[in-house]
Design a binder for these strands. Structure first.
Lengths: 220, 220
DNA sequence: TATAATAAAATTGTCGACAATTTTAGATTT
DNA sequence: AAATCTAAAATTGTCGACAATTTTATTATA
């Protein structure tokens, strides 16, 4: 699952990545209190380092912090999910439009080939490639926008939150083949340099994903 | 200029707000190095407090930081401006759409009246109300979405960056009357609960703003 | 003189301790 | 017994000092 690998140079970085992973992957559960002393002993770093990591998690909307009280892992709600996907729809729709303008031909080809490969795997029943493949698809389009701020915003902020929802709702692999078709159409629009269509298709794609998750969430 | 006043409870908060203001309003210039010791003596707080403030500025994309080297105020470029407005177009377009769905009638009425009042002031030549008025207009629509994540994202992140550009390019008040008409049409679409139109109009409005700034930027 | 290696200075990263605030537990009162 | 006030414990916020890294200044070499 490693495209966009961020490299941890400082101790705070490492702690931040580690903590984020534990939260996003559900080892630290939603709503849990993040005690600074507890985490500093657990990770064997100073409290200052943990504090810095928590601050960064707060900026990513993964934890909420109250002054003089502390930080808690964000609690997942149906409203929160809806809000998040409204934002994704806007940003990734724009991303598809911009990718149609700016993505190099070679990258579009690679993306197209990638989809074909994934389809082969899915046909053979290897559906565990699905999630990583989906993430890769979206990420390549984001990068194709060549909008650095958008890239940062989505890959640092939105995706980890979105994954947190999926993990905690146990959504590891539905909707494989339908998503594949949607992906195909989006790439075709990008290859045709039709930004308007690419945006429309991407927005629909994300709406479908949202509905798919919302159904699961309502059954809890 | 104070709607959405954030309240500073801790010392880090105060330092963050103060530092952000100095940067956004141009007292600390673009590209400037932010020395931790220098700022801690200037503001009479510890280095830890300054560090925390700088971290938060980094999360807002107002400063860039390199490990073991330090933080610098982001440098304004034509590309950066373009990127920022592409994001604004996507997010605020969606905001207008959601406001058409969710904004209470009373709030829409207030917004409409506000525009009329502003128009009166502008007719009398008091154009210095323009910028605050514009900001207020956009902010009310954002809040009208009732999407908390979107509200946070825009009011914490995007607007300060956008203002930074305007200040440093000396854009204190052009495009008053044309913007007024655009605002009027957007509010009308929201009042009609026509989300699709509201989004289209808002996106155009932001495109015009961008072009207006881009022209100035190209003359530097 | 220009370049490279080296040492000194300055800056950021990390740590443990103290201060301020909040939370918990116990005592007091009705 | 329930509610309120008080004191202790625990947690977060802030600070100054030390460690690690980068930058600058100096010296040595081609």
């Amino acid at each position: 699952m490693g495209f966009f690998q961020e490299q941890a140079v400082t101790s705070s970085d490492k702690t931040f990545f580690r903590l984020r992973e534990e939260i996003v992957e559900g080892e630290i559960s939603a709503g849990a209190k993040l005690s600074e002393v507890e985490l500093s002993t657990k990770y064997e770093v100073s409290r200052a380092v943990v504090r810095e990591a928590i601050n960064r998690l707060e900026a990513c909307n993964i934890v909420e912090r109250k002054a003089n009280v502390g930080a808690r892992v964000v609690t997942l709600t149906a409203e929160g999910l809806l809000e998040l996907y409204q934002i994704r729809e806007a940003l990734e729709g724009m991303a598809a439009r911009l990718a149609a303008q700016n993505m190099p031909e070679t990258e579009i080809d690679k993306l197209s080939n990638l989809l074909d490969d994934q389809f082969e795997l899915v046909k053979q029943g290897q559906s565990y490639y699905q999630e990583a493949g989906d993430l890769d698809f979206h990420y390549r389009i984001i990068v194709g926008t060549q909008n650095q701020q958008l890239i940062t915003m989505l890959s640092n902020g939105i995706y980890h939150l979105a994954r947190m929802y999926r993990v905690q709702l146990g959504m590891t692999g539905p909707r494989v083949t339908t998503a594949y078709d949607e992906h195909k159409h989006i790439v075709k629009a990008i290859a045709n340099r039709d930004g308007e269509l690419a945006e429309i298709l991407m927005r629909r794609h994300i709406q479908y994903s949202k509905n798919n998750i919302a159904v699961k969430l309502s059954k809890m």
